[in-house]
Design a protein around this nucleic acid. Structure first.
Lengths: 132, 132
DNA sequence: GTTCATGCAAATCGTTTGCACAATG
DNA sequence: CATTGTGCAAACGATTTGCATGAAC
């Protein structure tokens, strides 16, 4: 996404942001499109995506993606946490025990029942921090 | 992916699993394809994907995806953890403090420098556990 | 010999982009 | 009026799939 641009306001973008703020959910582009197409009969999905990218660039929203645009596969089927290097992008299995206390924390303090969790840590791997 | 099937062995699938076990990395389908195309000159990407799905079905490998095949967006830009309901799939922002101790744990016990982390909890949301 | 896997190519699907026109400032 | 945004449709790229042939058991 192109940074350091100036943006004009648009009614479409204002509404996309409003909708994202109203809903407690984490909608897809298509959901936003469906919600708004009555209001903007000629709305196109391209507009939704372009505006979402602008809002991301402005730091007004976040995308729940996970770094890679590709599916990634691993043969380590035991539960484990991942470390992802900000610089080189490599994904590393961590040799740390799974912490069941985290699930309890959710169960004690929220109305949800956590059975398991995933953690991804981000930072610098040893290679990259030595290189610096 | 179709479950409850029987699978014949194939040299291609054996090698895909072997490669995934050898590499400490978390490769993409395309990386596996590139590695194996010398060994199987007529190999196609379709075969890679089909076999990866079979291996997933057999529980021999894991995919590092994150539930949704769609990008998802949210207006809550403050750091927070997510809860994802196994039954209805909804993604919910958790009102729990971020735990900096988790990063220290990585920094103390591994050669990596963790600066931040993400957690996704999985289980049942209040709606779905009441429904049961 | 029946079932499953492969190679090939086309299809699918979420997302991006080029272009002519409309809206913004 | 100079720039940015929109709608439309085509393009893109990762993944999936239909089909005829080959391998497994």
């Amino acid at each position: 996404m192109a940074k350091n641009r100036r943006y004009n306001r648009s009614r479409q973008r204002d509404r996309i942001l409003e909708l994202l703020r109203e809903t407690g959910d984490h909608p897809t582009a298509d959901w936003l499109y469906t919600q708004l197409k009555d209001e903007f009969p000629n709305l196109s999905v391209g507009t939704i995506y372009r505006n979402l990218n602008i809002l991301l660039d402005q730091g007004l929203i976040k995308k729940i993606d996970f770094g890679s645009t590709f599916d990634r596969f691993e043969a380590n089927t035991a539960p484990h946490y991942h470390f992802i290097c900000d610089r080189c992008g490599s994904i590393i299995d961590l040799d740390l025990p799974i912490d069941p206390d985290l699930d309890s924390r959710v169960n004690d303090r929220t109305p949800y029942t956590a059975l398991r969790h995933k953690i991804e840590f981000f930072g610098l791997c040893n290679r990259c921090s030595n290189m610096q």
